[in-house]
Amino acid sequence: MVAEYERRRFTTDEFNRMAEAGIFASDERVELVEGHLVSYAPPQGPLHAGALWNFPEVIRTGLGGRAVLWSQLPVIISDTCELEPDLSILSHREPGYIKALPRLADVRAVVEIADSSIASDRRRRLPVYAAAGIPEYWLVGVRQERIQIYRDPRGPEYASYRLALRGDTISFQAFPDVAFSVDELLG
């Protein structure tokens, strides 16, 4: 049954003031999705950790100074949405991201790392990213050793999909000249 009550929604400004006021525990990962406070389960297991280390290493090596990598840090997606993707590939911006969080326009792609297939809550984020207009979304299944690549957001979905497996070579739409081997990314 549809709830007939209305939850109080928050803006990203209010959300950041909550963080500054110390409302959340220091080790807590809370995000703002459509104005609601959401706790995604913390990433589990060595496979997730290993991939979280290796992906930025490989991607940074490939892209050099052409992009900023932002790992498990907040990105302001809209007035009511602030997320912490596993890895955000950001445009260079002056004066950088030291004083102000990245916003949607800065995001070239996001990468989420899932260490189990169906139980992963990472997949829940696809409609959020698509609806926000994140241009490219990689969902890495470390156990299945595959990378789902979504592009061309249209409403809560992506119009383009590709599944990359070991042996394949992939690149970001924003940096088509830089190829990454799936083998190297998955290690």
């Binding site: 809370v30 406070l37 706790s39 809550d121 997949r123 829940r124 696809l126 249209r154 119009a159």
Partner: peptide, 25 residues
């Protein structure tokens, strides 16, 4: 073949059953 929400229909169905994990206050 067109719009894709997830990797397969089966997984899509499971996705929609996941409740949003609201952070209790």
């Amino acid at each position: 073949p067109g719009m894709v929400k997830s990797v397969s229909d089966m997984e899509s169905q499971i996705d929609t059953q996941l409740e949003t994990p609201y952070r209790p206050i």
